[in-house]
Design a protein around this nucleic acid. Structure first.
Lengths: 158, 158
DNA sequence: CTTGACCTTCAAGCCGACTTGAAGGTGTTC
DNA sequence: GAACACCTTCAAGTCGGCTTGAAGGTCAAG
C-alpha cells in the first residue's frame, strides 16, 4: 500500500507525460533534485515534482535550454529571494528571444522572396547543372543564418 | 607551377570560404563527388566546385539540410530537374519557419507579460517552492512545441 | 638539406537532449 | 514459488554538421 502522494517513477512519468528514462536523466544532470528513496531503493516523488516536470516541459517547449531551466530551478529552490535573479534572467532571455525572432524573420523574408521569384519563373525552367533557383539566390542569403543550434549557443554563451 | 584552374583544397577553401576539413567531410558523405588527384595525391578542383560549394552554402542558408542538398545535387547531376522538388521543399520550409516564428512570438509575449507582472510585484514576493514565473505560466504553452530538432526531423522524414 | 606550409588518412570528439540496452533487484498476484 | 510488471545502475548509441588530432607525405624556398 502506497502512502498518499508517494509516486513511483512510472506514476510520475505518466502524470507528467515524460518517459521514466528522461526523469532519471534529468536527475543525473541535476535538473531535478535527487529523489528520496523507499527502502527498496525505488525513487519516491510528490505532486510537486509533477509540477516541476510540467514547468520544465513548458520552458522547453518555449525554447529554453535545459541549462537555462536548471538555472531558474536552482534559484527558485534556493528559497530566499532568487526572484531578482530570476527576473534578470527572464529579461536576458527576453532579449535573446527577440533577437532570435529578428533573425528568423530575416531568414523568412529571404526565403519568401526567393520563393516568390521562383514561383513566377516556374513556367520555362530548365535545370541543367545546378538548380537555378538556388544558384540564382541573392548572395546575401548566405549571410543570414538559419541555424537553431547557433542561436541556442549564442544564447548560452552570454 | 599550377596548371590553369587547378585549385588545391586550400585554395578552394579560401575561394568558397569553407574550411578544408569541411570540404573533405562533404566529399566523405557524398555531397561533393570524389575529387580528382594530382600525382602527389593532392585533390584538384576546378571553378565548378567553387560554385557547387557556394550553392551548398546558399541552400543551407535557405534552411535545407545537407541530405536535402545532396538529393538536389544528385538529381541535378543525373540530368533530371529537381526544381519542382526544390520549390515544394522551399515552401515546406517556409511554412515551418512561419510556424516557429509564430510560436516564438507567442512565447515572447507571454514572457514579456509575466515579466511585467513581476516587475510590479517586486516588493513582497516570497519564492517558496517554485518561482511564480514558473507556476503562473499558462498551461497552453506546453501544448505548442518549439523544437528546432522536431522541425528538422519533420523536414527530413518527408 | 632543412624548414615550414601545405597536403593525406583515419579516428575520435563535440553539442544537446535524450534513448536504448544489459544485467539485475523488488513487489504483487496466482 | 513462479510469473510478471515494475524498479535499479551504468554504459553506450543517436542525430546533424562539423571540428580536432595524430601521424605522416609533398613541395617550394633559402
Amino acid at each position: 500500500m502506497r502512502s498518499m502522494g508517494a509516486l513511483l517513477i512510472g506514476d510520475l512519468a505518466e502524470r507528467a507525460r515524460v518517459p521514466t528514462a528522461t526523469i532519471r536523466y534529468y536527475e543525473s544532470i541535476g535538473l531535478l533534485k535527487r529523489a528520496s528513496r523507499a527502502s527498496s531503493g525505488y525513487r519516491r516523488y510528490s505532486e510537486q515534482t509533477v509540477e516541476e516536470l510540467r514547468f520544465i516541459k513548458k520552458a522547453q517547449a518555449l525554447g529554453f535550454s535545459l541549462d537555462e531551466v536548471a538555472e531558474i530551478l536552482q534559484l527558485s529552490r534556493a528559497g530566499k529571494k532568487p526572484c531578482a535573479q530570476v527576473l534578470s534572467l527572464g529579461h536576458e532571455h527576453l532579449a535573446a528571444v527577440d533577437e532570435r525572432i529578428r533573425q528568423l524573420q530575416a531568414f523568412r523574408n529571404q526565403l519568401a522572396s526567393e520563393l516568390a521569384k521562383w514561383d513566377q519563373q516556374q513556367a520555362g525552367v530548365t535545370c541543367d547543372g545546378l538548380c537555378q533557383f538556388i544558384a540564382d539566390a541573392e548572395p546575401s542569403v548566405s549571410d543570414v543564418k538559419f541555424s537553431p543550434e547557433t542561436a541556442r549557443r549564442r544564447a548560452r554563451s552570454r
